[in-house]
């Protein structure tokens, strides 16, 4: 399954990790890649653990769940502690910088950036944290062209919120240094 690129997005309900996951799946569809997106969540709409997954591949994806992710986004300490235990070798982990890196995790594979703070202060809306993360992830991993990603975002946001989401995407991208991009860039398939 070397052809599979598995991404996991984890946080608490209401942080929008499912949407972040869906946006990468949408970008994959736009660029002609195969993708399967799914999620697991508790009964709460807000709070509780929320986990979403996107698998990217050039070939048909059969098994629809992530087993050993190549990438993990964690927005809460609880989700980081849980999901950092199962990662593929060389996996990239992105976390909000308010979290502390668990001992089992190789810190050189962790991108720790102020996602929540950027959404709140730079973009001005806390609810854009997921889009900030999407911008940062794509900048670091270099998965999709910027316009493809923006199109993916557009298909899943309410009409009239394009500007603020665009702002969130680039604020997220700005959190990533060229060195980080160099270190974490992926080449699919």
């Amino acid at each position: 399954m070397s052809n599979r690129y598995e991404m996991r997005f984890a946080g608490s309900g209401g942080q929008g990790v499912i949407l972040a996951s869906v946006i990468f799946a949408e970008a994959a569809v736009i660029s002609g890649l195969k993708t399967v997106q799914s999620q697991a969540y508790g009964p709460e709409a807000r709070g509780g653990v929320s986990k979403a997954e996107t698998i990217l591949s050039r070939e048909m994806i059969w098994y629809s769940k992530v087993t050993v992710p190549n990438f993990l986004l964690a927005l809460t300490q609880a989700s980081l502690n849980t999901y950092s235990k199962t990662l593929s070798e060389g996996a990239v982990v992105m976390i909000d910088d308010s979290l502390s890196i668990p001992e089992n995790l190789d810190p050189t594979r962790v991108i720790s950036i102020p996602i929540l703070q950027t959404a709140k202060e730079k973009v001005g809306k806390a609810f854009t944290a997921n889009i900030v993360a999407v911008g940062a992830i794509n900048k670091a991993l270099q998965l999709f062209e910027e316009k493809v990603l923006m199109e993916g975002v557009k298909r899943h946001i309410p009409v009239g919120t394009e500007e603020i989401n665009k702002k969130a995407l680039s604020a997220g991208a700005d959190l990533i240094t060229p060195e980080q991009t160099e270190a974490f860039r992926q080449r699919l398939g």
């Binding site: 799946a25 993708t35 399967v36 997106q37 799914s38 999620q39």
Partner: peptide
């Protein structure tokens, strides 16, 4: 639930 909540192209 696997198929109902799964997204694919």
């Amino acid at each position: 639930e696997i198929v109902g909540h799964m997204r694919e192209g």
